[in-house]
């Protein structure tokens, strides 16, 4: 066990756990807007940590930059789609909801 492997395992496991926290936030948070927060931020950090761990045992500079490019792309994708979903939710007047309150149901959307 050298130092690099320990660092890599730490980054990999905490990155994967960050994804889990994002999903847990998606389940626990009270309304649509807060769920978008949980997902975009946690996934961005989770993927970042995993990409860092993978870069540590890559020798080629181009390949390392490619992984960073993929991370950047996912980052823009999640921020952009989070913003678009929030915008559309606001357009449809989806109400805010605090923790502990039950979310009001829209009959028409639940078929």
């Amino acid at each position: 066990m050298n130092l690099l492997v320990i660092l890599q395992s730490f980054l990999l496991i905490s990155g994967a756990l960050m994804f889990c926290i994002g999903s847990l936030g998606l389940i626990r948070f009270p309304d649509t807007y807060t769920r978008i927060h949980a997902l975009t931020k946690a996934d961005n950090l989770g993927l970042g940590l995993i990409v860092l761990a993978l870069i540590l045992n890559i020798e080629s500079v181009a390949l390392a930059l490619k992984l960073l490019l993929i991370w950047g792309l996912v980052m823009i994708a999640s921020a952009l789609s989070g913003h678009l979903v929030a915008w559309e939710a606001d357009e449809q007047c989806i109400p805010l909801c605090q923790p502990g309150e039950t979310e009001p149901h829209l009959e028409s959307e639940n078929e």
Partner: peptide, 18 residues
């Protein structure tokens, strides 16, 4: 931001203000 989300999600009282 990620640590902040983790702190809020894992807290049993769910300290979130929408």
């Amino acid at each position: 931001a990620g640590i902040d989300i983790a702190r809020r999600t894992l807290d049993r009282r769910l300290p979130v203000c929408s």
